[in-house]
Design a protein around this nucleic acid. Sequence first.
DNA 1: CGCCGTTTTGACATGGTTCAAACGTCGTGG
DNA 2: CCACGACGTTTGAACCATGTCAAAACGGCG
Lengths: 221, 221
Amino acid sequence: MQTALATTPRIPSIAPGLRIEAASRPETQRGFGAGEEIFAEGDRAGFFYRVASGTVRTCRLLPDGRRQIDAFHLPGDIFGVEAGTEHRFGAEAVGEVRVIAYRRERMLLTGEDGPLAREVAAATLRALARAQDQMMLLGRKSARERIASFLLDLAERMADGPSGHLRLPMPRTDMADHLGLTVESVSRCLTQLERDGLIALSPDRHSVRLRDRAALRHLDA
Amino acid sequence: MQTALATTPRIPSIAPGLRIEAASRPETQRGFGAGEEIFAEGDRAGFFYRVASGTVRTCRLLPDGRRQIDAFHLPGDIFGVEAGTEHRFGAEAVGEVRVIAYRRERMLLTGEDGPLAREVAAATLRALARAQDQMMLLGRKSARERIASFLLDLAERMADGPSGHLRLPMPRTDMADHLGLTVESVSRCLTQLERDGLIALSPDRHSVRLRDRAALRHLDA
DNA sequence: CGCCGTTTTGACATGGTTCAAACGTCGTGG
DNA sequence: CCACGACGTTTGAACCATGTCAAAACGGCG
């Protein structure tokens, strides 16, 4: 049922030099390799982040290892904003990632105004809307419907040209843990959608071409 | 799979007299009977609300009738706050309900300050946190675990004395549509938890006594 | 008392999981 | 350049938790 990987190596989030910079500047860039942890569930929420490049996943674990991926964050997306003092989710790099870290100080939602504050507020509301869609998906949709929804959503966010060619930055395990399925189910649904002609998978299986959006949208419901 | 009731009677949200008051005052009380609609999915979001008494459910429907209940709102809770101009959920009374309606104007999250604005911001963040918990529940927990989580959460929010006696204001169908299960599964899990001695159901089946919170919490994970 | 909506129970069906193994792909080192 | 090992993906077969369908039991109310 769960596919969490206990294998992620524990790596210091930032180099010492960077930490000093982070303390003195309002924002700072950081890079992470595939699978590296940006912050952990329970860490002090001293920063929030914006994806500069790559994809970030935010997730939680149950004590027995079951994992739920809250969201995938694409370039431009803000993540890691918290109401309290702690991160309620862990964040990890999916592949190579660069992020911009912003000091949290005084960026509480109700506090100071300014363009960034507005953006953070907007990001929070978007996160809420997404979470609500995801509840519908997890609570009431079939495996096929979940995959269809996911692909359409990703296609929209990635602004893929109408070529319909869509790169899937994350492995099947991540899709599974995001969609409340197993890896095997994800794989099977994808191959079935391919057999039915709704999608076409690239040879390396990491890209999809959406061949029949209407049908996918119909599944999306 | 779905248990949505196409039976909810369409009832004008408020009496004409009240509507006039609502237009001239910043807030106004409204009452609703069991099953009445407070606002519908897609309605213009001219107001947001606070529960004065009773329980409110906010939910969405899929075109084929499958229903997902986003949340149950108890006295004191704020609901119906929207980023855009439309309600993304419908809201209905579970049993008799009184709510306070607040005009939305200028209450946008980033706008005016003031105690109510702060409260709305806090409510939004709480809604996000709840939605995230619910994703974990829907994506990765078993039926028993979902029921246990739900009961504990409700017990906490209802501030039941340590007597452990907890009133369930909503019917089984509503629990089912909140937890991503069927009515039958909800019923079976409850009776099984009762047989196992973790809970005791009242004769009328609308109250639970949590007999073994430790065990429930263990299930909650 | 008798109706009606809700809850519970039973028997059965099935979508998705589990367990296991084959297959590809990619990076590494001989 | 190829053999190798690690990892991710796919596929197969058996299983099971939950869904489905049907009916009985219960409680409330006129």
